[in-house]
Design a protein around this nucleic acid. Structure first.
Lengths: 138, 138
DNA sequence: TAGTAGTTTAGAATAATTATAAACTACAGG
DNA sequence: CCTGTAGTTTATAATTATTCTAAACTACTA
């Protein structure tokens, strides 16, 4: 068993999912990467089917991605598009969004200065701050 | 003709829409307010039907809202929910999002300090920066 | 190794949004 | 003020993302 596979099984177990063939393949596609990966469910299914020759059902992919999201192994990105986008980079970070071609680019948290919010909402505190930067051609 | 109606007709004309009965009603619901208004298409249709006794089709509401959005009289908010949310406050501003009850609250631009983004993308410049602040109970 | 609890699957159900085409209407030009 | 036409409304169908379902299958505990 490859080292990476042990890691995938750990991720699955932590997410309360049994390591099945389909789920391990999903992990390979998502987590066996140098760079972070932005994807929609349909992107993921296409890769699984075309590049990995895996016959997999919609429900399996949705269930697995949602379990990873709940556990924090994937992050949902609030872009307004017809479908949801997810990011394998779950560190606290921000996004560029190039509206022209719908491309998403991560911005490291360290590349964004401190953000000062002066408005206060009674009984509530800030859980997280996300910056969403829209780009246009120079 | 009321003063406000003249204003609505101007908005409609600017959006390349003819001022029809249905569209003027939509304007009344959206723009005759003291405070800004966050809504989904289904919120809007419900108000038109229940509070204004207007029989109106889905397509008309979608078309009109999208034309206003394109022209900048409405702003789409990138929250991840099953449906799109729009804001009648089109000034550059930010949002609190209370995940517990799905409530959106505007943050004035003046209540957010300057934001420093150090990452550069070749050939692109920043079009806008939106800050999205998630809230939790204190 | 067998039982069971969790999983996969195809397909159906749901829900938001977009497309369609026929009936209707605002309005420019006479 | 008419009238023709280009734009609009409408009900309905189509599309698309997502969730649900229930039967067949499988990982894993004991």
């Amino acid at each position: 068993m490859k080292n990476s596979e042990v890691n995938y099984i750990a991720k699955l177990r932590n997410s309360r999912l049994r390591p099945t063939k389909q789920r391990i393949k999903i992990c390979e596609v998502l987590f066996n990467r140098e760079k972070t990966f932005h994807f929609s469910i349909s992107d993921l299914i296409k890769i699984l089917q075309d590049q990995h020759n895996l016959k997999i059902s919609l429900a399996t992919v949705y269930n697995t991605v949602h379990a990873f999201q709940k556990k924090g192994y994937l992050k949902e990105i609030p872009v307004k598009s017809s479908e949801s986008y997810y990011d394998t980079n779950v560190s606290h970070h921000h996004h560029f969004f190039d509206e022209k071609d719908g491309r998403l680019i991560d911005i490291n948290e360290t590349d964004v200065g401190p953000i000062d919010i002066q408005t206060k909402i009674p009984g509530k505190k800030i859980k997280s701050i996300e910056v969403f930067v829209k780009l246009e051609d120079q």
